[in-house]
Design a protein around this nucleic acid. Sequence first.
DNA 1: CTGGGCACTTGATATGGATCAACAATCCGC
DNA 2: GCGGATTGTTGATCCATATCAAGTGCCCAG
Lengths: 215, 215
Amino acid sequence: MHAYTASRISLPSHSAQPSPPAAFGSEPQQPVNFFPAGSEIYAQGEKAGALYQVEFGAVRIYRLLADGRRQISAFHLAGETFGFEADSTHHFFAEAINATGVRAFRFSAGADMSHQLLPLALKGLTRAQEHLLVLGRQNAIERVAAFLVDMAERQGGLRQVELPMSRMDIGDYLGLTIETVSRVFTRLKDKGVIRLLSLRSIEIVKHDALHCMSE
Amino acid sequence: MHAYTASRISLPSHSAQPSPPAAFGSEPQQPVNFFPAGSEIYAQGEKAGALYQVEFGAVRIYRLLADGRRQISAFHLAGETFGFEADSTHHFFAEAINATGVRAFRFSAGADMSHQLLPLALKGLTRAQEHLLVLGRQNAIERVAAFLVDMAERQGGLRQVELPMSRMDIGDYLGLTIETVSRVFTRLKDKGVIRLLSLRSIEIVKHDALHCMSE
DNA sequence: CTGGGCACTTGATATGGATCAACAATCCGC
DNA sequence: GCGGATTGTTGATCCATATCAAGTGCCCAG
């Protein structure tokens, strides 16, 4: 169904960790599971019961409508954690965007992880609520600008930003079509705000201007 | 700035509680704070440090862009809880929609509430992520239908649904203008799917059809 | 190196919802 | 109950983005 080409990109792994990454309790180090590009990590409806931490690569979290429309609610880069659910069922799909390593932390029965989980859940909640503002009230340029600013910050705030995902993924994250995403990239390039180093790698030339556009 | 008229509506308080409402630890019963229609409960940037439970009335949680565009990320009805933040600062505004009673639970220093808070935070996270799908990928009719279905469920699944908020609030929640919200209501009425009992009270005539439209 | 298949870009056109503009209904103070 | 203010509805028009349709360039298999 989805056929994705293998990753050419390795993201810098100094991405800003939303909260202390490793050190989940004093559990023994979990093995890293490998997922090739486009492969499913879990599916909507499956039984949940583990947290996942991205070791390398990138993950998309999404939902589908009956007719195939897709909304990506989050991307997760190296160092970030995903997989919590309100009940014991996954309400979303998780897929590796490209070759990705993931550490799974199963909940040991009885162990109360709520102390570690709460800050991660709250961080996710804030992120999702901020994304609501983007989807509900911002136009195409503002959405793309906000996305690029966010990606830049999560990659350490460098000028060069790697985009591990396709234009379609970006569109499905921002509630836009691939054509609109592409056109906005071109416009930003023409304005000298960004440079397209390659399809999946951009340089932010005018950081302030970009930040401004994202409101 | 915002002037809201006083509430004419008292919501049925048997609304489906997302999780056990009262019983926050064994704390002494907190007093109910009263907020008149349109009044602020907390503001973005303020110091956080309490959870709030709606006793009666309704609350809107929102963010603003610099130019005044507003996105309401959630409504909270009687029995529901709001106010958690990832850090000690409020990232959103909370306002009483109409005359509203709220119980505030301050975090006692040292007390670890994470066990109670986590399920509420996760519930909120799932809600927000589902709302992302609505804002990112659904059209006006689907958005309104999804909103009405949600409101109906939260009010016990009865035919008659009370809408404590204005069309503007609904628009700012669904990422639409008041005109579009109004037109969709009219269309649903003309199709015989709903009946408008009064401005703030509707009857769902064809529940299945409505559910279907919300996808 | 060559050819086929994707992912992406670019252009032309269509359209859903925004905007602008009256108008109608409801609420509320007096 | 009256009159002004506020909230909601309806209609006409506009525009941002979707959709449809070529094209281009990149990547991988052979």
